[in-house]
Each structure stands twice: as structure tokens, then as C-alpha cells.
Amino acid sequence: MKTMNIKEELARVSVDLFSTQGYAKTSVQQIVDAAGVTKGALYHYFNSKDDLLFEIYDRILTLQHRNLEEIAARNLPLEETVRTVCEDVIITSIEWIREGTVFFRSQHMLSPDRMEDVKIRRRRYNEIFGALITRGQAEGLFRRDIPTAVLVANFFANPHYLSFWYQPHGTLTRQQVATQLTDLYLAGLRPAPCEGSDQ
């Protein structure tokens, strides 16, 4: 195995093992055996099993964060920017659905330090996304009767719940799911009919 692929292989077999037998029941020895490497090789890239679980999530969020910044830099109309970002989150969450499922079912077992890392990474993404929603509120595009934090949380419930119902080999494509969930979200973002009137 090429050195550059060892980290990838460790991450891959970790997802396989965590998804089939659970994070708690998977040992470091089982991971290195499945990857065909030594414990020394694992500890060269990861300090602990915690680090492997965090890496699974970090890869997804790093991709989504990079896409978010690239989409925001296009200077599209605001609602189109929000739509494109939302669809990207759904599509990438489906593409990485096994990894996401493993993480969300096991994240409570992370060490306090690693959980804090997760919160920081999420906060950075949510701040950028939330700024788009706040801008839409200021421009009258989005409703102002519900706090931005609630509107942001309302969207991110969608990708987190995908693993409970979405079937990768089912009748709905990734794009269809992304479009439909985003349509529903944007409909909920639009101002209520009475908003902005003098009361």
C-alpha cells in the first residue's frame, strides 16, 4: 500500500467497521487488521480512535465549507445563493451518507475535547450560512418573525435526518431530494403575509 493511501484506507475501513459493528465495539486492532497496516502506521496519522471518528465528520464538513465559500463568491442573487448552498448540503450529505450515519450515531462517544472541535467546526459553517439568512431578512426576502438561529437550525435538521429515510438505490435521485427539500425550506423562509404591516 502506498504511503499516501494509508490514511485514506484507515478512514475507509473505520467507516465499514463502525457502521457494521458500532463504534464502541470496534477496536484499534480490528481497524489496523482490516487496513493491513500496523498500529504504528495508524498512530502516525491519528492519535486515537476518537480522531478517526472526528476525521470522518471533518471530511464532510470541510467539503461543504469549501463549497459554501465558493458558492458565496459567485455573487449570485441572494435567494439563488441560498438555494445553491442548501442543495449542495443535501447532495453532499447523500454522497457521504454512510460516513454521516456513522458519525451522528456515535458522536456522543467522542471525548469532550473532540466534541468541542465539532462544535467549533459547525459554528464556523453556520455563521456564514446564518449571515446569508440575516442579509435576506434585512432585504425583506426572508421572514423576520423567527430568529435567524431557528431558521438555520430548521434547515440543518434535513441533512441530519437523511440516514433515517433516504434510500440511495430508491426512486428519488440526490438532485430530486435536494431540490424538493430546498423548495420546502425556501417556502418557509418567505415572509408571512402580515409581516411588515403596521400593527
Rank of each mutant, 00 (worst) to 15 (best):
M4C: 06
I6E: 10
K7S: 10
E9H: 05
L10V: 09
L10P: 01
R12H: 14
S14D: 09
S14I: 01
V15M: 09
L17F: 08
A24W: 12
A24E: 15
K25L: 09
Q29A: 15
Q29H: 13
I31M: 02
D33K: 04
A34D: 04
A35R: 03
K39A: 12
G40I: 07
G40Q: 08
G40R: 08
Y43P: 06
H44N: 12
H44W: 08
Y45C: 00
F46N: 04
N47E: 12
N47K: 12
K49M: 04
D51C: 04
L53G: 06
F54G: 06
E55A: 08
I56S: 11
D58I: 05
D58R: 15
I60G: 11
Q64L: 09
N67Y: 10
N67R: 09
L68S: 01
L68R: 00
E70K: 11
A72W: 05
A73M: 00
R74L: 15
P77Y: 06
E80M: 12
T81M: 06
R83G: 13
C86S: 10
E87D: 09
V89K: 01
V89P: 03
I91F: 10
E95G: 07
E95S: 09
W96G: 10
V102T: 11
F103A: 07
F104Q: 07
R105L: 15
S106A: 15
Q107W: 05
M109S: 14
S111D: 07
S111I: 00
P112L: 09
D113V: 08
D113I: 05
M115E: 01
E116W: 04
K119S: 13
R122G: 07
R123M: 01
R124I: 05
Y125S: 02
Y125L: 07
N126T: 07
I128A: 09
A131S: 14
T134R: 10
G136N: 03
P147G: 02
P147W: 01
T148P: 03
T148W: 01
A149E: 14
V150S: 14
V150L: 15
V152P: 02
A153H: 01
A153P: 02
N154K: 12
N154H: 11
F155K: 04
F155A: 07
A157I: 15
P159S: 03
P159K: 03
Y161R: 08
S163G: 00
F164D: 12
Y166F: 00
Q167H: 10
Q167W: 06
P168K: 05
P168W: 07
P168C: 08
H169V: 06
H169L: 01
G170R: 14
G170V: 15
G170M: 12
G170H: 15
L172C: 13
L172G: 10
T173I: 13
Q176A: 12
V177H: 02
A178G: 03
A178T: 00
T179L: 08
Q180T: 15
Q180K: 10
L181M: 12
T182G: 11
D183H: 11
D183P: 12
L186K: 00
L186Y: 06
A187K: 05
A187W: 04
L189F: 14
A192L: 14
A192D: 11
A192S: 13
E195K: 08
G196N: 07
G196D: 02
D198F: 09
Q199D: 13
Q199C: 13
